[in-house]
């Protein structure tokens, strides 16, 4: 078992990176690896629990919830969260923590591989 750190910098719905993030993280977890993620810039929007969409497609936040259930540790950049009016992440799903760049630094220190998306 090894540890994968992933930094995601894009939000849901606009670019494909959140889907790559979800697929890669899930595949790593399914293989028994540890996954730690840092949500930076617009990526913090992935954790908001009130997402809705008119068609029956998997919501980004549901995919993130599944990752957390499988053991992924997710940290959102606090400056990015507050800058977007997300008030310390009070509307985030359970399991998404709000932190700072020192958390990214520790994630980097502890990782075997680092992916940036």
């Amino acid at each position: 078992m090894a540890r994968m750190a992933i930094m995601l910098t894009e939000g849901p719905w606009q670019t494909e990176n959140y889907e790559i993030f979800a697929c890669l993280a899930e595949a790593a977890l399914d293989k028994g690896h540890e996954v730690e993620a840092f949500w930076y810039i617009d990526a913090v929007y992935n954790g908001i629990k009130h997402q809705k969409f008119p068609e029956d497609v998997p919501l980004p936040v549901e995919r993130m919830k599944k990752l957390i259930e499988k053991g992924a540790k997710i940290m959102a950049c606090g400056i990015c969260v507050n800058a977007r009016g997300l008030e310390k992440g009070k509307e985030f799903i359970d399991g998404v923590r709000v932190g700072g760049l020192p958390d990214l630094a520790d994630m980097v220190s502890d990782a075997d591989v680092f992916i940036s998306l």
């Binding site: 930076y40 760049l101 020192p102 630094a105 220190s109």
Partner: peptide, 11 residues
């Protein structure tokens, strides 16, 4: 900012 940030941990 990330360049400064990655140096900010324990290591």
């Amino acid at each position: 900012r990330a360049a400064v940030g990655v140096s900010a941990g324990i290591d």
